[in-house]
């Protein structure tokens, strides 16, 4: 099978994730979009690793997973706090930090 297809899949997943981040208001869903984008890049890294025959891409994918896990912890905590105070998980309601 042509490895390029994996890249097309990765791009498709990234596009879906990005669209999710841009159009959805619910913070949890937006968060899922972000995760999807991260994993789309992981897929691209692994595919490139396979194409090059080196292990570098896979190492970076592991790093990304690690960072994503940490980010989930912090992000979900923030979303929880916001929900508790404002009774809403919509990202559009959290707009106090502006001009």
């Amino acid at each position: 099978m042509n490895l390029a297809w994996w890249l097309y899949l990765s791009a498709l997943l990234f596009a879906i994730g990005a669209t999710t981040v841009l159009v959805r208001r619910n913070a949890i869903i937006v968060f899922m979009g972000v995760e999807l984008m991260l994993n789309a890049t992981n897929l691209a890294f692994v595919t490139f690793s396979r194409m090059q025959g080196t292990i570098d891409g896979q190492v970076i994918a592991l790093f990304v997973m690690l960072v994503a896990a940490a980010e989930v912890v912090v992000g979900l905590a923030i979303i929880m706090t916001i929900f508790r105070t404002r009774r809403s998980a919509s990202v559009d309601d959290v707009n106090l930090l502006k001009y």
Binding site: R25, V91, D92, K98, Y99
Partner: peptide
């Protein structure tokens, strides 16, 4: 500073 709308999605 009008660019700073506070809307996360527009930043994204």
């Amino acid at each position: 500073r009008r660019w700073q709308t506070g809307l996360v999605r527009s930043y994204a």
